[in-house]
């Protein structure tokens, strides 16, 4: 565990000192600011639209961070050969991967905390409540980011960064469409259409990222049942374990030529 935390802290330091992070933060802040402008277009729902876009800004920022920074995490170590000296130390390849995973996750949590503070101030300014539901919405984004980081890490050890971004982004998009496929199967007229049949089959092998979408809960003050939270947490943990196990399996047999 000590080795994992040492690698995680170093990964955190690596990402924090990388300029790309600040580009992503600025982008996310712009999205949150845009939410005020977009909210202003509505006479009656300004606060709600702003909150909705604000949460979307945090979610997009966290997803970009997971995919774009995650795609180079292992690739950079291999390309620059820093991995050689690292794996020559008393750590296993799996511990190295875990360190990378937790390091990036730590960065995402830190960045999200900052963005959430900005959004909270904005919501207070717009006279919306910042209560438990606000944190539940953020928790959903955290769970989704955990899965995204593990997906990106998995592709990162078997492909180049560009391909990793393409694969991980595709899974991200499919993950958000999964519930639509399931919905299509429930409509009688569509149930026999190939898109619904194949879509629902694919859906079984892809995490349903919409399960973590509680972003409208604080906007419309809709309560989120505790069992939903528990189920989503277990669901996320299950997928993360699957992706990390696959990553570790692929990485264990890799030759660093």
């Amino acid at each position: 565990m000590k080795s994992v935390s040492i690698i995680a802290v170093n990964t955190f330091r690596e990402v924090i000192r990388d300029r790309i992070l600040y580009g992503i933060i600025v982008f996310a802040l712009l999205l949150i600011s845009l939410s005020v402008v977009l909210g202003g277009l509505s006479f009656t729902e300004q606060a709600k639209i702003s909150a909705d876009f604000g949460f979307a800004g945090i979610q997009i920022g966290a997803s970009i961070l997971s995919i774009f920074v995650g795609s180079t995490l292992v690739a950079k170590e291999i390309e620059k050969q820093t991995i050689l000296t690292l794996l020559a130390r008393p750590i296993s390849r799996t511990q190295f991967l875990m360190g990378k995973f937790f390091g990036l996750f730590l960065v995402i949590i830190t960045v999200m905390a900052g963005l959430a503070a900005v959004l909270a101030l904005l919501l207070i300014y717009l006279r919306l409540k910042v209560d438990g539901l606000f944190f539940i919405a953020l928790y959903g984004v955290v769970l989704e980011s955990l899965i995204l980081v593990s997906i990106t890490l998995m592709f990162g050890v078997i492909s180049r960064p560009v391909m990793t971004v393409i694969f991980a982004s595709s899974l991200f998009l499919i993950g958000h469409w999964v519930s639509s496929f399931e919905g299509l199967m429930k409509i009688k007229a569509m149930a026999t259409e190939p898109i619904a049949i194949y879509g629902s089959k694919i859906a079984k092998f892809v995490p349903n990222l919409e399960r973590f979408n509680w972003r409208s809960a604080p906007v419309y003050s809709t309560p989120v049942p505790a069992e939903d939270l528990l189920y989503a947490t277990l669901y996320a943990a299950g997928w993360v374990l699957v992706f990390l196990a696959l990553t570790s399996f692929a990485f264990r047999r890799r030759d660093f030529v």
Partner: peptide, 17 residues
């Protein structure tokens, strides 16, 4: 591993450290 030191060929290290 704890008793061995290693320097690879053409080493590149973490330049941000």
């Amino acid at each position: 591993k704890a008793k061995i030191g290693f320097l690879p060929e053409r080493p590149y290290f973490y330049e941000y450290l």
